[in-house]
Design a binder for these strands. Structure first.
Lengths: 193, 193, 193, 193
DNA sequence: AATGAATGAGGCTTCATTCAT
DNA sequence: GATGAATGAAGCCTCATTCAT
């Protein structure tokens, strides 16, 4: 069934609540009412789109976070893998990040059990234990920093304008260096704001 | 008029298109139709909320980007100021970041003339010229990296849980160090993805 | 007060129910609510505009219909006077003819007591008695014929494009000749339809 | 679909803007919203009603204007046919003549391409060329004279009170005689107005 | 004489959903 | 598997009218 594909694309393009079942049906050469042979509700459609990319994304991060290496190494690998995953699934990721809170409270709750930020936070903490991450870093804030940066990618990355690998590497270089223990000298001077 | 305040709060809480004028009117102890004494359309309400925080935010970044110091210094200062601005305007920022694309194409266009990312990108380029930013950094990608991280703040930052200053400093420390020219030695070894 | 003038003009231009009190107030540099210092209701405004031109028009016809001469002579004179009256009062006439049936049933009834068609019909009948109007003419149909022709004038006559007198004379020539007893010969041959 | 029929009747009876979709739906035993399964907007409903009778009317006149005979003969035939057409389509004609200017400017424009008055004017001019119409007649004014008389019919003609044929003949007799070249003598003396 | 803030009723339109066929 | 006709609830918006000041 490509109802999910079509729905994902349209939700991504014009937003969940601005997409009508009529439009989805048109795209599928079906009548509006006929959709209900396949779905139970518009809500379910959104849920399915989000759930799929959400679990895949989580599995992807988790898988890479279990590789060998320091905390920092595994953080780097996991985030790069995450960026590749979301650039490979741009429409679904867009829907996920944009329309998550259109889901019912119960479903939002359900999908929050797999907490991307927590996965990253744990890697940072492990990095601080093994010395690969600077101890002055606040794991909670830093994990949100990285997650925010990656979750913004769908807003500007367009296939064809530079490879996803390049983005992943640039991102990783910045936070890897930025969170490493200071080497060879003083910390950069602060400029008072 | 606190129609704007009330609207901003409700748009932030439940989304623009899930907020009804009925609900806004109820909150203000007005009849639905009475709102039209103050506004022209629901759309205008969204526009006003977004426009205000958008211009303030831009002015704030721009102002700080003109201070003295190296490109990196000014980048650090500007981003920290931006974080303080958005934590001080959480609801409006939420509406801005979540509902921007519910605006008419014309209004999106209008509000895109002031491009936050460009402001940051310019500072990065200037930093590369003056040597305060590592030359291997891609200004376009790095500016999006920082903007993404800061634009995610509204999703997890809640007043009372750690100060905004702390967030700003942690963020700045990471990208400042992360984008500096390498000091005293080799670049961290890449882990193949 | 030129509320009546302004209203008449706007009713003529965009129709009674498409004209809002807001628009009328704007034109008068008043606030919408302030109109109610002068009027009782929008309905009254329409009524006043129509009543004025209606009575004037009726008085005008009646006056001319009492002059000397044959029935036909007086019909001619009255209709020509009527045409001059309505071209001199184009906006009010437009409102009268276009919006008459937006009036309440009671007011329509009231304004129907002065029946233009009846005035014309009586002249035609008198003309048949005195021999100035062909006896084969049906007075009821002929009076409607003339009234229709004149009541259409407001739709195409524009000040400046030929004088009203010219229109009046052309009209009068046609129905005067057309309703006269046949002279000097046979009636024009009918073409079967 | 008898949505058009019902709508035409109600528009004729109480005017376009005083007719609500609620009333139309009630008449059809539908819910208000259900109408939109059949129509796109209230405006379209008006357009369809008018367009249909408008084209039919134009085609009817044009067809008869191409018959054989003098200009006057064809004018007579065409006008008589027009009267029969409008008496046969009283409600639609009423809507056409009363609500035409409630249409959007674009649609008014579109429907003005077929200009009834022009068709009549051309016949009059041809009549002047072939000698069947008096040369002193102003074709533009005379065509409006006839069109006005016929366009007024819907206001007073009621089925059952005299046949449409009778009306058509009376009308035709008046303007036919009235516009013929003078026979056997002087023009009727003018009465100075 | 006029303002300004509201009211309240009702209008057009949209849309997810249902259900007999 | 799918259609076609409808439902029903709700949404945005308009506007004549009121009334305290």
């Amino acid at each position: 069934m490509d109802i999910l594909e079509v729905s994902a694309r349209m939700f991504a393009e014009r937003g969940y609540s601005s997409t009508t079942l009529q439009q989805i049906a048109d795209e599928l050469n079906l009548l509006k009412g006929s959709l209900y042979y396949y779905i139970n509700s518009k809500d379910d459609l959104l849920y399915e789109v989000i759930r799929a990319v959400y679990w895949q994304g989580g599995a992807n991060i988790r898988e890479h976070s279990k590789k060998h290496g320091s905390g920092m190494d595994r953080l780097r690998v996991s985030v790069m893998a995450h960026i590749r995953h979301l650039t490979n699934n741009l429409t679904a990721t867009t829907v996920f990040l944009h329309e998550f809170n259109q889901l019912s409270a119960a479903r939002q709750e359900e999908l929050s059990r797999l907490d991307y930020a927590r996965l990253l936070r744990e890697l940072i903490v492990e990095g601080q234990v093994d010395g690969s991450v600077r101890s002055s870093v606040d794991p909670r804030i830093a994990s949100m920093f990285i997650l925010g940066a990656t979750n913004w990618v769908y807003r500007w990355y367009r296939t064809g304008q530079g490879s996803a690998d390049e983005v992943a590497e640039q991102f990783a270089d910045i936070f890897t260096v930025g969170m490493s223990p200071v080497r060879g000298g003083a910390f950069p001077t602060r400029v008072s704001p």
